[in-house]
Design a protein around this nucleic acid. Structure first.
Lengths: 141, 141
DNA sequence: ATACGTGCAAAGTATTTGCAAACGG
DNA sequence: CCGTTTGCAAATACTTTGCACGTAT
């Protein structure tokens, strides 16, 4: 089952009605392979002739985050970005260019294993994690 | 050499004069073992009878970040926190309680090695990284 | 003396909230 | 119908900037 339909159903189960703006945000997020800021979501929906208020974008993201359907990513520039929470094993993390601000995804299974191992021994029930690497990308260095 | 004196010297070398507010921020940061927000720095300095303007706190942090003397930590609540950049091997990362918002430090050498390994194979010259684990702390779960 | 540092207040961003109208069940 | 969702505008929270004055060199 796709993340999009899964998210729409989870929202419904959680007592939310199927509103147009929220569905548009969910459908856009479901088509991404990396994170988007609220403003980017707002702009892309407007470009796609499906304009919504920026407040609705934030409210949709809040509802999705509450249900852990999206993950909040902070890349170090003070702008929150959001992406679909990993369903299966497509877990990834982020690589930020210090110069141009570009955000890219990467994944590494050995890193995941190291994180799972350390998370187990801390006295917390860790249910989410994020790794951000910062440096200069090939274009900028 | 302590981080505090190292930072004060680096600032001087970089052409900054030794201003009172900035020095107060550096000295406070040097006494921390984990990250502080700008507001926390402002409050603690005021409590310590060394009041500074909040703008000076931000400006000091900006200058320190520019020289990579402090590391910016984003714990997922939209507030930027800052801590002395690791000098030797006292590298650590952060553990955030989803319920009470508490931020704690942890470190793990195997995790560091996994990160160094993956950072080498990405085409970026990675010079900084951050790991944030989110979950429920012992008190909250 | 001169340029940098500082504090205050104002401005700027990102995000949240109040509210009336539109909408879904 | 009735309560939720939406969009707008206003409010808020964090951070940055403009400016006059103080301070270090």
């Amino acid at each position: 089952m796709s993340w999009t339909s899964d998210a729409l159903e989870s929202l419904e189960v959680a007592g939310h009605r199927r509103g147009g703006a929220r569905a548009a945000v969910v459908e856009l997020l479901g088509r991404q392979n990396c994170c988007l800021s609220a403003q980017e979501i707002f702009d892309q929906l407007r470009k796609a002739r499906r304009p919504v208020g920026i407040a609705s974008v934030y409210r949709a993201l809040e509802a999705l985050a509450e249900l852990r359907l999206v993950k909040r990513v902070e890349a170090g520039d003070g702008i929150a970005r959001f992406e679909p929470a990993p369903v299966d094993g497509d877990h990834h993390h982020h690589l930020v260019c210090r110069d141009c601000g570009k955000v890219e995804a990467f994944s590494d299974s050995r890193l995941e294993r190291a994180i799972d191992r350390v998370a187990g021994g801390l006295g917390y029930s860790v249910d989410e994690h994020e790794v951000v690497l910062v440096g200069a990308c090939a274009d900028c260095s």
